[in-house]
Each structure stands twice: as C-alpha cells, then as structure tokens.
Amino acid sequence: MGLIGDTVDSIKSIQTRQLLNQAVSLGMVVTSALIIWKALMCITGSESPVVVVLSGSMEPGFKRGDILFLHMSNDPIRAGEIVVFNVDGREIPIVHRVIKVHERQDSGEVDVLTKGDNNYGDDRLLYAQGQQWLHRHHIMGRAVGFLPYVGWVTIIMTEKPIIKYILIGALGLLVITSKD
C-alpha cells in the first residue's frame, strides 16, 4: 500500500495515551520555538530580531529574500550603519543606510537621514509629509548580521498561502503519525 497505506494504518492504530503523548510533544515543539523567539527579542533588544529584505533598494548588498539580524543597543546611531526604521503612516519597516547624523549637544537627541544604497536620492521622499529627519523612536534596530536567501521561505508563504497550508498539514501529519 506504500506511503499512504502506512499512514492510514498508523492513524487507525492510535490509542488515547499515544494521542496525548503526541499532543504534548507537538506542544513542546511550538512552545520551544516561541521561547527561542522571545529569548532573541530579549537578547537583541529589538522587537523583531530578524527581518526579511523585501525590496531591492539595498542591492547589491542585500537582495530580496535575504534576512538580517537586528540589534538594538543604547549605542548612539552613527553614519554608515544600516538601520531598520518605521515611518509614521507606513506599515512596512524600511532597511536603509544612515548618511547624515546631527546629535544635539544638550539632550543627545539625533537627527538622522537615510538612503538606500541602490537608490539615487535620499529618503526624504519616503518619510512622512514634511518630515526632514528620522529620530531615535523611529528606529527599530541596526543590522549586525546577514544570511542570504533564507527569507524566501517567508516571502513564498505570505504570497502563496496554499503552500503554507500544505506545509503545515504535512508537518502535522508527520507529528501525529510518528511513533517513537
């Protein structure tokens, strides 16, 4: 009967105790993933420790589908750093490089201007209407590490939800039917 037959047989043979056991192990998988994510949030100090690059504005350094690891420390922001920032009225955060910094003498507040490496002009056009500078509270983190291609998994899953469901279904079936 092959793969399908085996799978059907193993579902039939599930006993209550085994079912409970598997529910617990599934719970363990989910919670440990959550623990890792939350721990990363604590360590990096950023609300999203990992971001996926969605646009080509930083090419050829970062391409669509690459992932960046963020870190948010109290160190001052300096020119050249690649920061992830939120602009008021825009949902998706932007990953660009800082090209100008003006730090106040008295309060230590910063005015920051950013630009995508692959864009011709600076980001003032992307900022909110009339906004000239980014401030500390706009910035979610600075990029410290880089991993190519891995982000395609999430891009594909958000753009083709059917693949996500198939994948979740297959994994669920694997967990349910596994015997150890």
Binding site: A79, H102, Q105
Partner: peptide
Amino acid sequence: ETPKNSLNQVS
C-alpha cells in the same frame, strides 16, 4: 562639532 550639536556627520 558645533555649539548646538555635539556631533555632525555628513556623508
């Protein structure tokens, strides 16, 4: 450095 700003960095 200027009287107003402790650091100015202009690319």
